[in-house]
Computed example of a mutant assay.
Amino acid sequence: MIKQTFPSVISDNDITILVGNGACDLTQLSKSPKGKVIAVDGGLRHVLKAGLTPNAVIGDMDSIKLSDLQAAGRNVAVYKSDNQDTTDFEKALLAIEAPVCLAYGFLGLRVDHTLACLSVLARFTDKHKVILVSADDLVHVTKGPFSMHLASEARLSLWPITPVKFIASSGLVWPVDGLTLAPNGQVATSNQMKEDWLSVTPDKKSEGVYAICCAPEFLPQMIVAAAKA
């Protein structure tokens, strides 16, 4: 049954898996860490194909199939919101609390949808620790200092969502110390690790928001780093 009343919070003490309707590697999703699974609108199709059981479905239900809802079963809570001032991704984030959220199916296919997700995450850095996961990339949007284990020669990109000045960095082939990055100015894509430990420290006065992008093989390390950031 579809509930018109939207939940205020779906609490979870573990990792929460959000699954959107974008490009999704089903093998990767099926091997995701254990946690509560929230299908975001049409992302339910990916959840079912990956052999996972959704705990809830959230969205405006404009891209979901009735057959998928029926296949999910009657025990799955379905929450519909017709609010068109928020994306389905934002609706899901507003409804949950979790130490870390892994979001599959939100990168790829449509660039405008990816940009919308980054915009949402830029506004949620104080509320949620979210990692966007795809077959090719991990993306974590944050502000303030960030550090994590990677591997020497691994690719690493820092993308400014708002202007951000870095006062210190370590582990990078091309350090960003003293650089002010901006979406309409200098960026730091296609950087590379020269050591196995990344550390970047923005200027506290800048309050800048930036995205950290790396290969999906480093998901366990990024989960640990995001939880501590």
Results as ranks from 00 to 15, higher is better:
Leu172Phe: 09
Leu138His: 07
Glu97Lys: 15
Ser190Cys: 10
Ala98Gln: 11
Ile2Thr: 13
Ser63Gly: 11
Val111Tyr: 08
Lys36Ile: 01
Thr16Asp: 02
Gln192Arg: 14
Asn13Tyr: 06
Ala211Lys: 05
Ala211Gln: 00
Ser190Asp: 01
Lys31Thr: 12
Pro7Ala: 09
Glu97Cys: 13
Gly22Glu: 03
Gly20Val: 02
Ala135Arg: 13
Ala116Ser: 03
Ala56Phe: 12
Phe6Thr: 12
Gln28Glu: 13
Ala50Gly: 09
Val37Asp: 03
Leu69Val: 03
Cys117Tyr: 05
Val111Phe: 04
Val141Ser: 01
Asp196Val: 01
Met148Gln: 13
Leu138Ser: 06
Asn13Phe: 06
Gly171Arg: 09
Arg74Phe: 12
Ser67Val: 08
Asp41Lys: 03
Leu179Gly: 01
Leu181Tyr: 01
Ile10Met: 12
Asn55Met: 15
Val120Arg: 00
Met1Thr: 12
Leu48Phe: 06
Phe166Asp: 05
Leu48Thr: 01
Phe218Leu: 12
Asp137His: 15
Ala225Gln: 12
Ser170Asn: 07
Ala122Arg: 00
Ala135Lys: 15
Ala211Pro: 00
Gln28Arg: 13
Asn13Gly: 13
Leu44Asp: 03
Lys165Pro: 02
Leu219Cys: 11
Pro220Gln: 06
Asp88Val: 04
His113Thr: 02
Pro160Gln: 05
Ser81Trp: 02
Asn191Tyr: 14
